[in-house]
């Protein structure tokens, strides 16, 4: 996508609303409906990667230090990572208004 969806007028659309650029779903910000976000306590985290495995959005990545962090562009705030983390290193906090 060359520009955000909000800038498309009806005249800009491809025929039948075809998406002609493969793979551009990665530019879709699924994180914009999140009402809470995960906070990682690196003191508790043992870098096991369980949150990475359980994340239904596939938005958790391992950073340079080896910690697993959610990419907030995609994270929908479901809280599954916090629920599954067996050392309780993740807490969900409400998004501010």
């Amino acid at each position: 996508m060359t520009k955000p969806e909000s800038e498309f007028t009806w005249k800009d659309l491809e025929i039948g609303g075809i998406v002609a650029e493969p793979g551009n779903a990665s530019q879709y910000q699924t994180g914009d409906w999140r009402s809470q976000r995960p906070i990682l306590d690196t003191d508790k985290c043992i870098k096991c990667g369980l949150c990475y495995i359980f994340c239904p959005e596939g938005c958790i990545e391992q950073n340079a230090e080896g910690y697993f962090e959610a990419n907030l562009f995609y994270c929908k705030g479901c809280g599954i990572c916090a629920r599954e983390c067996w050392v309780k290193a993740i807490t969900m906090i409400p998004e501010e208004e």
């Binding site: 969806e5 909000s6 009806w10 659309l13 039948g16 609303g17 075809i18 998406v19 002609a20 493969p22």
Partner: peptide
């Protein structure tokens, strides 16, 4: 040349389509 047809259209784009 892959294309996506009948993709999902959130409220931000449905009216335009």
């Amino acid at each position: 040349k892959p294309v996506t047809m009948g993709a999902f259209g959130p409220p931000i784009i449905y009216t335009e389509t």
